[in-house]
Design a binder for these strands. Sequence first.
DNA 1: CTGTTAGCGCCTTCAT
DNA 2: ATGAAGGCGCTAACAG
Lengths: 344, 344
Amino acid sequence: MRPTVHDIAAEAGVSLATVDRVLNNRPGVRELTRDKVERAIASLGYVRDVTAANLAKGRSYKLIFILPAGDNSFMLGLETEVREAIARSAAERTEIDILFVPAFDPQALANALAEAHRRGPAGVAVVAIDAPEVTDAVRRLRDDGIAVVTLVSDLPGSSRDHFAGIDNIAAGRTAGTLIGRFLGDRAGPVAVLAGSMLVRDHRERLEGFRSVMCESFGSRSILPVIEGQDDPVLVEKLVAALLERHPDIAGIYSLGAGNRGLVAALEKAGRAQVCVIAHELTSYSRAALLSGTIDALLNQDAGHEVRSAIRVLKAKADGLPVLEAQERIRIDVFLKDNLPNGQA
Amino acid sequence: MRPTVHDIAAEAGVSLATVDRVLNNRPGVRELTRDKVERAIASLGYVRDVTAANLAKGRSYKLIFILPAGDNSFMLGLETEVREAIARSAAERTEIDILFVPAFDPQALANALAEAHRRGPAGVAVVAIDAPEVTDAVRRLRDDGIAVVTLVSDLPGSSRDHFAGIDNIAAGRTAGTLIGRFLGDRAGPVAVLAGSMLVRDHRERLEGFRSVMCESFGSRSILPVIEGQDDPVLVEKLVAALLERHPDIAGIYSLGAGNRGLVAALEKAGRAQVCVIAHELTSYSRAALLSGTIDALLNQDAGHEVRSAIRVLKAKADGLPVLEAQERIRIDVFLKDNLPNGQA
DNA sequence: CTGTTAGCGCCTTCAT
DNA sequence: ATGAAGGCGCTAACAG
């Protein structure tokens, strides 16, 4: 059997309470006693049973998730994952609330962060917008010892504890290499469709994409970015116009959401031969990948992101270290051949 | 607060012991009493605290992993992951032993399974070889109520409880689409390099690859399969000969291990323009991907596989259901652009 | 068949 | 500064 607090107490010749004080480095122990206990801990190779500790503490973590409202499938999927985490909250000792804010509205987001602050949670997870008022609101949370994790889109200049999302520059580069190699010698420009340049993730994907195109496929021309606000209706309108304006388009990189509109525009225009790389696996994008309208899909697993955010918030709330390597979110690359069978 | 066994006992007017019997559907409770308790459970919305239950049980799961010996990096990585699981075993209430067997030797594997059987574990995880003596050995384990999970390579006809590995047909198809699209109109045949047709995962990858090549790139010729036994030295010899025999080779799909030898042969022959798709991210394949010798890498995360195998073995040992969707192992697709920074 | 009692490993008053 | 005692939610003898 592995050693317990009792063994340490016996070995060190002190009481359980003293061992506990040392273990949780609480005050009220003489240097000398503390040393004795620490020697016992080391010599017995003691490791604390975290589950038993949690049971005894009966602690529960109050967390708030701030998500953008809007009906694109990716954000709905993210919401679903948070709700599943809420369903698990009994087992995970969490109490999770969701706050919705209008998309791409920095002031609204800052207000939501303030509201979250008022509720006094142990931690906040937020899909960030890269704006000063948001950075400020995050700092105020952190100043009060509330842990903050950015989700999906980061806020690098801020004091957030952690980012639960993919490396968006790498994602953009991956899209660039795929579209460049898939197109090979086929002529024609490539268009880029984004949601909004206000959010960091979209800006970074664009940056990665452009740098690869420039480094490795320099002769391919890139059209100016189109911003569709992640709104399927607007996206469809913009893409329809784009296809009309440029009959010779060879490829499209859609780095935001609202792909429902992209697919509709392509199919109505009968432009199946355009090479399309898009982000996020949803029921729409999945269908388009299978039908051949979309050639490849880059994806971030919303479930992983939410679970990682929760683990990190709990750890930070307890002042525990985070294994960054374990919390890294992978960029999934899906072709029609390796689509998981599941829902999503 | 969420309800506890005490609340149920009070609500149903019975003792804790009776509640516990119903909860773990143990015998010795009258139908009527059982009903009362079940009603109380339902009406209070009780969910059992698994961590407290485990604490009280003090149970620990004895597990055995059977891995092929040999010095290819993938299997070494797998071993490392098992050792990390062993390091966590205190916290996870597991006692894990590793048994090594010569690679691609069905009889040796069957013997190892028998040895594992003798040790009386709660579960066994095994990198399977598709052979009757192995299937038999697995059945004997299962007949004694020992849980069996196949790892990396499956044994579908057998009575194993679960397979912790990727969909290898999908992996082969993905490789086919990538190589087909990357090559475009470039002329020349494609070669396939496997470890051994004795193992299911290699056979399935080949099957998926061939079917996509046939369906979507029918004009491309595929050379006969080369078997390198996952041995870097043998692989290098075989590939060197292959390159000499076929100066016009356009692409190589390496669906097994031993890629160190593949890379060496390609680099010595100065054949960097050959399009290469390989499996498994190791320090060698990573370097080759970055240098451009390898064009894309398909990967299964050994850490995920090991952790999943352990979760499943524990669940099966307790007769609990497994959420297949949650245990699905993804096929990672790596280009030089989206390589994780970590070790591996 | 059912209930009582004593833990599992840890934390937390409350005394001393 | 230290210790004794009780409890977190559940399970496991052992009695009745």
